[in-house]
């Protein structure tokens, strides 16, 4: 009866049977819904992994181009500008904003890059020479960073989806392998108990009716006996009536001779 998952501790009554049945139904509905959710998420997840793969390839190319343009800058400027740039960086011009995207009830953040055009830390960089290269390099790197931001949001979505899919699958499995069998077991148990009660009740009724029958039979027999007794009494009374007082004149007994 209990199997591996056991059953819930309930009293075997019709009410809890009804409860269990509705619970089973709810669990089955929830199971199918969660399964569909997990499938939708997995589909999205595969798409994201594919896009991550693509974006990583793209990132390699873009970063190469950007590095090349930086090499152009150092050639044109004719010296190392790294130190100067590191010192003049004050406020971020390139920023990201996080937005939310809803995939089957899971909120995935999506980074969106934007530039604060009012901030310009490098206005004087390359003023002497190589200004054009610096400008080009900035644009190239800005594009590269956009690719990186896109990749970052894909990656974040990947991490979150991974986690959510695990949770959903765990729930699906829990419902499928624990809750549904347990509820079914409980229903089976309640049914068997109720059947047992039914049989007991039937047996009891049979006993009762047997007893009644016996009682009736006894009463009948008694009545019969009483009636018989009564009839016998009546008969004997009749006999009494008839026998001593009025002897059979037409009988075989010889009449006593009449002597005149």
């Amino acid at each position: 009866m209990s199997g591996a998952v056991g059953r819930e501790a309930v009293f075997p009554t019709r009410q809890s049977l009804g409860l269990m049945k509705s619970k089973l139904k709810g669990a089955e509905t929830g199971h199918s819904l969660l399964k569909r959710k997990s499938e939708a998420l997995t589909k999205r997840f595969r798409e994201i992994t594919r896009r991550i793969d693509e974006a990583k390839q793209k990132m390699g190319r873009v970063m190469q181009i950007a590095a090349f343009s930086l090499a152009e800058v150092s050639y044109a400027v004719g010296g190392d500008i790294g130190y100067q740039i590191q010192e003049s960086a004050k406020q971020a011009r390139f920023r990201v904003r996080a937005k939310q995207e809803n995939v089957s009830g899971v909120l995935l953040p999506h980074f969106e890059s934007y530039t604060e055009d009012s901030i310009n830390d490098f206005g004087l960089t390359g003023l002497g020479k190589g200004g054009q290269q610096v400008q080009r390099c900035r644009e190239t790197y800005a594009r590269a960073v956009e690719t990186l931001v896109e990749l970052a949001s894909l990656q974040t979505a990947f991490v979150i989806l991974d986690e959510v899919i695990k949770v959903v699958n765990r729930r699906v499995n829990a419902i499928e392998h624990v809750i549904i069998p347990r509820t079914e077991n409980t229903i089976k148990y309640i049914n068997s108990e109720l059947d047992e009660l039914d049989r007991e009740e039937f047996y009891r009724l049979k006993k009762v009716s047997g007893k009644k029958q016996r009682d009736v039979a006894a009463a009948d027999a008694e009545m019969e006996a009483a009636r018989e007794r009564q009839a016998a009494e009546q008969q004997s009374a009749l006999k009494l009536d008839e026998d001593p007082a009025a002897p059979d004149v037409l009988g075989e007994q010889e009449d006593t001779d009449v002597i005149f």
């Binding site: 950007a66 590191q86 971020a92 530039t115 610096v134 590269a144």
Partner: peptide, 8 residues
């Protein structure tokens, strides 16, 4: 390069 893009 990244600082030039303005992330600093």
């Amino acid at each position: 390069g990244l600082l030039l893009a303005g992330i600093g």
